[in-house]
Amino acid sequence: MILVTGATGTVGREVVRRLPADRAVRIMARDPSRISTAPPTAEVVRGDFTDPTSLTGALRAVSTVFLVTNQLGDDDARFLHAARTAGVRHVVKLSAAAVTDSGAQDLITRWQRRNEELLRGSAMQWTLLRPRSFMSNALSWAASIRSDGVVRALGASSPNACVDPRDIADVAVRALTEEGHAGRVHTLTGPQAITAVQQTAVLAELLGRPLRCEEWDPQQARTALHERYPPPVAQALLDSAHRQRQGAKAQVEAGVPALLGRPAGSFCTWARDHLGAFTGA
């Protein structure tokens, strides 16, 4: 039995879509009614990282897990304890490429490093997926593109080897269903580093309308992020943007083509497939 967590998220829902129909799959969600992509054969159960009883039920008879956590805190520790107790053999963990960057000392990256250490020390088999930023982060521009044809970004001219979440999901499914991934780390990027200015140009061409990219100054970015996130998280995101401006996120890795036997998906392809979000269709 494969257990998928994070199935309402960007990568998790793509994993659910891609798992083979002949595999026994269970999907854990805080609110099962939000699961809209589950195949008819999948079992959907309520589970909460903060509720040990629900974890015990979700993990019953499970051998392999796709683990996604996004709340700073101890969710990984609680889940890994429950998984080890339930006899889970293999955990495929969604982490982040920044964990290998010695210059990344922000709160979020330190949390991810600690979670990786917990998994490595859990006595279960493990696989770590370390993607660069998701191409789907561009969806945060959709409203301003629709309303006034503007992309507003911090570090608009700094490159990021962002990756299509569907590629991450394809790699995750390989790791969940094939032998040979235990004890391995897969760093996943797109085929090229691309800036927000270049992404804006791609979207303008696909939409057939002029768009402009406006650079946020640090104070504008700080104000906008503090309106959306708690101060420590906002600061972590500002620190991450600073590292990107220094070129820390421009390295292209061979993980996706090596694992999938095809080129990594481009931003142009991702944008074309999600163009409706930018038109309101």
Rank of each mutant, 00 (worst) to 15 (best):
N160T: 14
P39E: 14
V11H: 00
D48R: 04
S136P: 04
G149I: 12
S157R: 15
T200I: 09
F267L: 11
S144L: 03
R243V: 12
A250H: 02
Q112R: 12
Q112H: 15
E253W: 14
G190N: 02
V252M: 12
L55F: 08
D239Y: 06
R114F: 09
T279E: 11
D217V: 09
T127I: 11
G47Y: 04
R84H: 09
T189P: 04
T64H: 08
R114Y: 13
V44D: 13
Q71K: 15
A201L: 13
E253N: 14
D74Y: 00
A77K: 10
A38H: 04
S122K: 06
T195P: 02
T37A: 12
A234L: 06
P165Q: 06
H181Y: 11
I2T: 07
L55K: 07
R84N: 07
R243K: 08
S36K: 15
P230T: 03
S140M: 07
G276F: 04
D31W: 06
G261S: 02
V171N: 00
A123L: 11
R130P: 02
L3D: 02
R132P: 00
F278Y: 09
D170I: 00
A104D: 13
G103Y: 12
P210Y: 12
T69L: 01
T187P: 01
Q235K: 03
T8S: 08
P20E: 12
V44Q: 13
Q192Y: 14
V65L: 04
R89S: 15
A224P: 04
V65P: 08
G9H: 02
S144N: 07
A83F: 01
T189F: 14
A86C: 10
G155D: 01
R23G: 04
S36W: 06
V252K: 03
S147N: 06
S240Y: 14
P40V: 04
V150F: 05
P20A: 12
T109G: 10
F134N: 00
A175F: 05
P218S: 15
M124A: 11
R78V: 06
L3R: 01
L72K: 05
A248P: 08
G121K: 08
T223K: 15
G149A: 06
V15H: 03
S158A: 15
G57M: 10
R46Y: 07
R30D: 08
V4A: 08
V68F: 07
R46D: 05
T56S: 15
M135R: 00
E205F: 12
G276D: 13
G73T: 10
R113L: 10
D217M: 09
A21P: 11
T41K: 11
G12D: 00
T56F: 10
G6P: 02
R78Q: 12
L80S: 06
L207T: 13
A264H: 01
A97S: 12
V173M: 03
H90R: 06
H186S: 05
